[in-house]
Structure formats: structure tokens, C-alpha cells
Amino acid sequence: MQTKINNVIEHRTVRCFRNFRESEIIESVASEIRVALIYNGVSHTVMMASPADLECFAIGFTLSERIVDKVTEIKSIDVEPNDKGVLIYIEITNRCFMALKDQRRNMAGRTGCGLCGVAQLEHAVKPTIRVKNNKIFNINLLPNVLEQLPRVQTMFNITGATHAAMSLSERGDIISSYEDIGRHIALDKLIGSYSKNKSITPTAILLTSRASFEMVQKSASANIEIIFAISAATSLAIELAEKSNITLVGFCRNNRATIYTHPHRITSEKLNTLDIMEPGRKQAY
């Protein structure tokens, strides 16, 4: 018997105001569940995640963690909810499964730190992948992207408890957006979505969180060339982005941005009349 798990749960709370006035209300909170990833019948890890788009998460995680090299090496995915969470059964090719068995990782309960629970330190840092050099993004389109955030962050608007990862077109439009309580899981869902649909790699991605080492490492695995982050980048993220040929941009808010690495992909050309006249578009840099 399958159990339906909602993304948002209503919870009775007491809200306190200034001067200690209290009011009992029903608050919407983000659902957090245990998600077990099982490869070829062998349990690999348990993650804490939001229950939406779990097939995309399974694909993205399997690719970004380099358990497989390409999506065709994933033979099947079965998502089975139960009263304790969700079991995801992933069948991969024998070659990939044998390689996984040689590098078993124990990452139970990872929600924020991408390196927590790694059995050996050397397994935390995978071989560097250098991405291609095909994408260009006009920084003057970024304000339009940021204006679209309230429209695509539906779970955040209700609960205030989720991060989002979104793909951007070269015109500054949000192509797709995925939310989760874990920022790295939101990115996995995004990677899994366009890998599953075999669509073209986006011009850039936008993260509503900081840019950490793992976010850059996952992006490199997916050949993402440009990363925009609302918050700062960490030192290891900058170091890896430099080595991976990724353009990493942080503090993307309040009409500013900090380009940490490979600035050649970022242009600042004046927008043409059509772009400026479109609703929500404006030049701010």
C-alpha cells in the first residue's frame, strides 16, 4: 500500500508578537522525508529531502555523483513511498554497479553539507571535469531573472523553508525550476530533469543559496558552464570552479554580482529595444 506524501503540511502553532502578544494559527511547513537510494538491490544512502520530483532527483544524483557516466546507464527507477519515507530502487548497468561497490559511501542524513559522512577524505574530491566553453550570458538580463523568482518558488512562498535551482536561457528566461529543503538536492532534481528529457544543457543555472564545493562539483558533472548564486561562494567552490573552467558568480542581488572565475562568459552588452520593452526586463548593470 502506497502512502501519499504532501510537499506542504499544516501545523498548529503559536505566533508571538511584540510585547508578548500571542496568537494561535495554522502554519504551512515544508515536508521533510527520508529518501533511501537503493542501487541494484543494495542500499546506498539515505537523504532528507522534499517529496516532490523524486525520479528527477534519483537521475540527477546518480549522474552528479558519477555513479553512472550517462543517463542511458540507468536502466530503471521505481519510487515506492511507505509509512517511513520513500524507497527509490535504481537499476544501473553491471559495470557501473561494480564500480559503485568499490567506492561505497555512507552519507546517511545529509541535508546541508555535501561532504558529511564520506568514509574516506580522498573520496570527497572526485577527479576534476573541465566543462565546455560554448555559453555566454548578458549580465544585464539578470535583474529580469531575479524578478521571476517569486513566480517559480511556490514552496518557498508558502513555507519559507526551501531552496531552488533553476535553468536559464540565453535570453534571461527561467526554463525550469526545482525546489527542495536541501540546496544540493534541488540541483540534482534540475540536472535529472533535463538529462531525463534529453534537452539541451541550459546557458546558465541560478541557485538561491550559497555556492559550495559540492554544488560546483555537481555542475561540472552535468557540463554546466555558468553558475549564478544568490549568496556567496566558498573558497573550495572558487578553487574547483577555476579548475573546472566554470564561470562562478555570487551575490546576485540588489543590482550587483561578483564574478569569481572565468569572467569571459559574462558580457554587459546594452539590451536592444525589444528586450527593454518586454514586461519585467530592465537594464540595471
Rank of each mutant, 00 (worst) to 15 (best):
S195A: 11
D188I: 11
T201G: 02
I181C: 10
K198P: 11
F156N: 13
A220T: 06
L142R: 01
A204E: 00
Y178F: 15
T201C: 00
L141N: 06
A186P: 15
N157K: 08
A204K: 00
I136Q: 12
A211P: 12
A186Q: 09
H184E: 15
V152N: 01
S167E: 02
E214N: 09
S177I: 03
R210K: 10
I205K: 01
N144W: 13
N223Y: 12
R171F: 15
F137M: 12
P143T: 06
N197V: 04
R210W: 11
N197A: 05
G192S: 05
Q148Y: 06
I139N: 05
K135Q: 09
D188G: 05
E214Y: 09
L207W: 05
S167Y: 02
K218R: 08
S209N: 04
T154F: 02
T154I: 11
K218E: 00
M155I: 13
I158G: 02
D188W: 14
M155L: 15
R210T: 13
P150G: 07
T201R: 02
S177F: 00
P150R: 09
Q217M: 04
N157L: 11
I175F: 02
A186L: 13
V152C: 00
S212D: 13
L187H: 03
Q153D: 07
I181D: 05
V152E: 01
